[in-house]
Computed example of a mutant assay.
Amino acid sequence: MAQPSKPAKSGSLRKRVISGVVLAPLVLLVIYAGPLPTAALVLLAAMAMAGELTDTAGGADRPVAVPIAVAAISLVVIFAVTTTWPAVFVVAAAGGALAGLILRGRAGLVTASAFAYVAIACAAAIWLRQHPDIGGALLIWLLVLVWATDVGAFVAGRALGGWRLAPHLSPNKTWAGLLGGMGGAAVLSAASVAAFPVLGEVPWLTSLPAAAAMGAGLAVVEQGGDLLESAWKRYFHVKDSGVVIPGHGGILDRTDGLLAVILAVAALHLLLGTQA
């Protein structure tokens, strides 16, 4: 039986806990404050992620790629705020392609794809928050279940160990951790829906069992997004995408699973909408 990896060092874990306790309430307050504060937060995160993507892929050798990617993703956010959606997709594709051409080769192709993925996810977050009735509650619910997934996976993985989920990508992840993350997300998803009755307008959150099932399903998506970023870091032989957040690394290291969940929720919202 494959064994779980060694637990994180206590100093690193302490930094992660402190960072989470400080940042999580601030993020929730910004989202609660309205669409424009949320867009400003997304803009800052998007600029950081674009910089991390291009810098990791060779920005030190071709430094012009970094400002181009940052400028392009800033335009994506601005067009999302102004609901100019055709421009969002055009700039996301063009910005990624231009940065990729500058970086060249397979590294450029990987970066172009990653840039478009991140840019569209950032635009999707702004779109979700713009809903006049449920936008704030929907994003808060989404964040809560992502955090619940991470905490549940961490606790279950350390306590139970066992078979590794994807040893070549992320040796610390186990199947027990995945199940723990699904359980945590299910419980907190249902609790969030109970706390925000307005979420009952969402067809796929009309009951607590439905909310729990959706939380568990999105926990799998979240872990998939985490593994996707792990594959990206493995490709470029880096441990972290950056050093912005103590104990967590870069912004991409903190939002990898969140980006995947945002895209999944946006797709559901686009297809099914609300009852209102």
Rank of each mutant, 00 (worst) to 15 (best):
G59R: 06
V70I: 13
M49Y: 04
T56A: 06
T54D: 12
V81A: 06
L75A: 11
V66G: 02
P67M: 01
T56R: 03
V81M: 08
V76T: 05
M49L: 14
G34C: 10
L28M: 14
V77Y: 00
L36I: 11
P25W: 11
V66Y: 07
M47F: 08
D61M: 07
A48M: 14
A50C: 04
I78M: 11
M47E: 05
G59T: 05
V70R: 04
G34K: 09
G58Q: 01
V76E: 05
V27R: 10
I68C: 12
I31H: 07
A48R: 03
A71N: 07
L75W: 09
A72Y: 04
L28A: 13
D55P: 08
A33N: 07
D61I: 05
A50N: 04
S74D: 06
G59S: 07
V81L: 10
G51I: 05
L53M: 15
R62S: 10
V27N: 09
L28H: 07
D61P: 00
V42A: 12
P67W: 06
V66L: 07
G51S: 08
V66D: 02
P67A: 02
L44D: 10
A50R: 02
G51F: 00
A40T: 13
G58A: 03
A39P: 06
G59H: 03
P63A: 02
L53C: 12
A48T: 07
L41F: 14
A69K: 05
I73G: 01
L43M: 14
L29V: 11
I73S: 01
L36D: 02
L26F: 10
L44E: 10
A80P: 02
A24S: 12
A69M: 03
L44S: 13
P35E: 15
A46E: 05
A45V: 09
V30F: 12
D55M: 15
P37F: 10
V64C: 11
L75H: 09
A69H: 04
